[in-house]
Nucleic acid binder design. Sequence first.
DNA 1: ATCATGATGATACGTTTGTATCGTAGCCTC
DNA 2: GAGGCTACGATACAAACGTATCATCATGAT
Lengths: 250, 250
Amino acid sequence: MERSERGRPAVYCSRSCQARAYRQRRNPPAPVTPPETERPDAHARKRRRIAEAVWRIASEHGLHTVSMRKVAAEAGVSLRMVQYYFDGKHALLVDALRLLHVENERLARARIPSDAADPRRLLRALLDEFLPLDGQRAFALRVFTAYYARSLADPALAAVFLAAEHPLERLVADIITMGQAAGSTVPGLDARREADLLVAGITGLGLDVLHERRSLADVRAVADYHLARIFAVEEGPPARSADHPRSDPA
Amino acid sequence: MERSERGRPAVYCSRSCQARAYRQRRNPPAPVTPPETERPDAHARKRRRIAEAVWRIASEHGLHTVSMRKVAAEAGVSLRMVQYYFDGKHALLVDALRLLHVENERLARARIPSDAADPRRLLRALLDEFLPLDGQRAFALRVFTAYYARSLADPALAAVFLAAEHPLERLVADIITMGQAAGSTVPGLDARREADLLVAGITGLGLDVLHERRSLADVRAVADYHLARIFAVEEGPPARSADHPRSDPA
DNA sequence: ATCATGATGATACGTTTGTATCGTAGCCTC
DNA sequence: GAGGCTACGATACAAACGTATCATCATGAT
C-alpha cells in the first residue's frame, strides 16, 4: 500500500497539499501540457529553447551523450523544466527532431531563390541545401545524421524522417522535368532516376565533407559536373559560384 | 594512502596474493594482451566472438544501447571477460568496428567475381556490395551506419572510416576508365565524378532501403539506369546477377 | 617444489541517468 | 479568501553503467 517508494519522501506541509497530491495521484493522465499546440507564445518558446540545447549537444558530442541533465544545463534551465516541457527523454528526442525539421525547412525555403526562372540554377540551390556550406547547415547536417542512425532502431524517429523528407526527390525530378519541357536538358533522360541518385549522392557527399574526407570544392565540382551533364551546357558567364578550392570551413 | 577505494575490498587470501596485487598496482601498463597480434588462435577468436555481440546489439537496437554487460550477455561470457579482452568500453567499440571492417572486406572480396572481363558487370557487382541484398549485408550496413554517425563526434572511430573506405571511389573510377579504354562507354565521361556520385548515391539509396523508404527493386533500377547511361547499351541477356534476396542472416 | 603468468570468476564502488514525487508561488475564478 | 491551475524548485531513489580490484585455477618455467 505504500504510495511512494521513490521521489522525495512524503512530509506533507499541510492537509491541503496532501489532498492535492492524493488527487493528482489518482488521475495520472496529462494535467501537464494538455493543449499541446495552443499557448502560442511562452510555452513554445521554452520548448524550442530546450530543443536547441538538444541539437547543440547532439551536434557537438553526439546523440548518445544527450541526457536530461546535460540538456537542462545547456539550455540554462533546471532538470525539472526539461521534465515539465517534454514527456520523458524519448519524447524529448523525438520532439527535438520534429522541431529541427520544421526549422530547417523554414531556413531552406528562405535560402533558395523563389524565382523559378532557370531550372538549373534552382536545382543547384536546392542541392546546396544538403551541403554544409555554412555553420548552420553543417550543424543541422550533423544533428540529422546522428538522428538518422538512431532512427534505424527507433520507429518513432523513423516516422519523422519518413513523413518529412520524402517529397524531396520528387521536387528535384519536377525541376528536371521542367528543364526537359523547356528543352534545356540533354535528351533521353529519366528525370526520376536522375533525381534519386542526385539527392542521395549529394547528401552522402555532404557527409563526407563533414567527415573531412572530402573538400567542399570537390563536392561542388561533382555536383556541377552532373548538372552540366543533365542540362545542356549554356549559361553565358562561367557562373562558378564557388569552384575554387577556397577552403571555406564552417 | 588507502590503496583501494573501489572494487572488491581488500581481504587478502594470502601473503603471495597481496604481494602480487602490490606489484601489479605498481606497474599498471598492459600486462593484459601485450602481444596484441600474436596468439593467433584462441585469443583472437574470443575477441571476435565478443565483437560479434557488439555488432548484433548495434544492428538490432543501436549503438547507444551497447553496454559492457549487454555485450557480455549476448556473447555468453562474463563481464570480466569483456573487460579482459578489450581495454575498456571505448576500445571495445573501436576494435569491434575494425574487426567488422576487415570481415566485411573479406566477404565482399569473396562475393564479387574476380573475372574482370566485363567492366559493367564488375561495377554492378561492386555497387551491389552497398545494398542490403541479403541478411548479412543489411546487418553490416546497419552497424556501419550506427558507427558512422558516432564517428562524427569520435575521432578514433572516424580514423577507422578514413583509413578504410577511401580507395573505393578510386576503384570504381578505375573500372569506368577501364570501360572507356575498351570503348564500351559513352564518350565524354569524367570517370572520377561519375564514380563519386555513384558510390555516394548508391550508399545513400541502400540506407533508404534499410529505412523502408524505398524498395530494393527501385534502387536497383536506379543503379541499372545509371550503369546503362555510363556504358553503351549492350549485354544481350538481362544478366541479373543476384536479384533474389536470398536472406542469409549470418 | 616453487613461482610467475594467463584466463576467468566474483564482487563492489562511485557515478550518471531517468523518473517520481512533494512543495510553493503566482495567477484566476467563484 | 478558498481552491484550482500552471510553472517551477528541490530532492530522492532505483537501476544501470564503467571500472577496479581480489581470488582461483590451470600450465609451464625454474
